[in-house]
Simulated scan of single mutants.
Amino acid sequence: MVYGSLIRIPGDAFFKKTEQKDSDIPQFVSDVKQYMNRLKPVQIAHKVKQTPFVYKDLSMSTHTFVRIDMIKKLLEPPCEGPYKVVERIPNFFGLKMKDQLKNISIDRLKPAYLLKEDIKLPEDTPVSPPPQDKQPEDKNPRTSRLGQVIRFPTRLVEVVQ
């Protein structure tokens, strides 16, 4: 609508302006009904069904977390687990949950990245302790004015001495 222009009623937009008489009103009503009956709904574009997000590492993971699909209380974790993967079916994974095999959809799964210490090995497998990096102790430790010992990185020890 533009300031200063005339306001049009919807009938003016559809039909030509002609002078109408009281005898033309039934004809006008029937024309409007016919016009409205010819109108068809506009075709809508159907949305494409989105595929669920699946982690790339899920196909190779030995353990997974399972997303909890319910309303959670405050500070409640969003996932349960980790659970061991027993079998892989295209859209489902068989997980060992509480001594039972349950099939869970892959869109609820998240791969678990476990450390070697966290994975339980059979008892007959020897486990070696992780290597520890030991820094050679300095025979003449340098101290600050406040008496704190200053430790330089090993790559800089030769430069400082």
Rank of each mutant, 00 (worst) to 15 (best):
P10F: 13
P10Y: 13
P10T: 10
P10H: 13
G11N: 07
D12V: 03
D12T: 02
A13N: 09
K16A: 14
E19I: 08
Q20V: 02
K21D: 06
D22R: 13
D22H: 10
D22A: 09
I25N: 06
I25L: 14
Q27N: 10
F28A: 15
D31C: 04
V32T: 06
Q34R: 09
Y35N: 11
Y35F: 15
M36V: 05
M36W: 07
K40W: 04
K40S: 14
P41M: 12
Q43C: 08
A45M: 08
H46I: 08
K47D: 04
K49Q: 11
Q50C: 07
T51S: 14
T51R: 14
F53H: 13
F53P: 04
V54Y: 04
K56N: 09
L58E: 06
L58G: 03
M60A: 12
M60L: 10
T62G: 11
V66Q: 15
I68A: 10
M70W: 00
M70N: 09
I71Q: 15
K72G: 02
K72A: 03
K73A: 07
E76I: 02
P78T: 04
P78A: 01
P78M: 00
P82T: 10
Y83M: 05
Y83L: 01
K84I: 02
V86H: 07
V86D: 13
E87P: 00
I89H: 15
P90F: 04
P90H: 05
F92H: 15
F92S: 07
F93C: 00
L95P: 00
L95D: 01
K98H: 12
I104C: 06
S105A: 13
I106T: 01
R108S: 07
R108A: 05
L109K: 14
K116E: 12
D118N: 15
K120T: 04
L121K: 14
P131N: 07
Q132S: 11
Q132F: 05
Q132D: 04
D133V: 14
D133M: 11
Q135C: 07
Q135K: 13
P136K: 07
E137D: 11
E137H: 08
E137Y: 07
K139E: 12
P141G: 01
P141C: 00
R142T: 03
S144I: 02
R145I: 04
G147M: 08
Q148K: 15
V149T: 08
V149G: 05
